[in-house]
Measured scan of single mutants.
Amino acid sequence: DAEFRHDSGYEVHHQKLVFFAEDVGSNKGAIIGLMVGGVVIA
């Protein structure tokens, strides 16, 4: 149960990062950079 909640939280966090990247611009380099930055921060 705890693992499921953790996975759901991660999924929401990931979707927010992707949405933010798409909102800023559909530049693949920027999106990839944001994703990598999110992984480093996390």
Rank of each mutant, 00 (worst) to 15 (best):
G9A: 11
V36M: 11
G38R: 01
H13Q: 09
D23T: 09
L17W: 10
L34Y: 03
R5C: 07
H14F: 05
S8F: 13
L17R: 14
Q15C: 15
S8K: 12
D7S: 15
I41V: 02
I41N: 07
I32D: 02
V18G: 05
V36G: 01
F20L: 10
K16C: 05
K16T: 14
L17A: 06
V12C: 14
I31A: 04
F20W: 02
G38P: 05
I41Y: 08
F19C: 04
H14T: 07
D23K: 11
L17Y: 14
V36W: 02
F19W: 04
F20D: 05
F4Q: 10
V40I: 05
G37A: 04
G33D: 04
I41E: 00
L17G: 13
V39W: 04
V12I: 09
D7C: 12
V18A: 09
A42N: 15
F19A: 05
A21G: 12
S26F: 07
I32H: 03
A2I: 05
G25W: 03
Y10N: 12
F19Y: 07
D1W: 06
E22L: 03
G38D: 04
A30C: 06
F19G: 06
F4S: 05
S8H: 14
V24T: 08
G9M: 07
L34A: 00
V18S: 07
G38H: 02
L17K: 14
D23W: 04
G37L: 01
Q15N: 13
Q15A: 12
E11M: 06
A21L: 14
L34S: 04
A42K: 00
A2N: 13
D1G: 12
E3I: 04
H6P: 13
E11S: 09
G9K: 13
D7F: 11
D7E: 09
R5T: 10
S26M: 08
A42Y: 02
A2C: 06
V40D: 03
V12E: 08
E11H: 15
G25Y: 13
V12L: 14
V40C: 08
E22S: 15
L34C: 11
V40M: 03
S26D: 05
G33F: 04
F19I: 15
G25C: 11
H14Q: 07
E11P: 15
S26E: 09
V24E: 10
A42H: 02
G37K: 01
H13V: 15
G29E: 07
F20R: 12
G25A: 09
L17T: 15
I31Y: 03
G9I: 12
R5F: 04
K16P: 15
L17H: 14
V24P: 08
V36P: 01
V36T: 11
L34W: 01
K28Y: 08
V36Y: 12
I31F: 06
V40Q: 02
V40N: 03
D23G: 14
G25H: 07
I41P: 01
F20M: 09
A2Q: 12
V36K: 04
N27G: 00
V36E: 00
G29W: 01
G25N: 11
G29Q: 08
G37Y: 01
G38A: 02
E3L: 03
F20A: 05
D23S: 08
N27P: 03
S8L: 04
D23L: 00
A42E: 00
N27C: 02
M35P: 01
Y10R: 10
A21T: 08
N27M: 07
V39L: 05
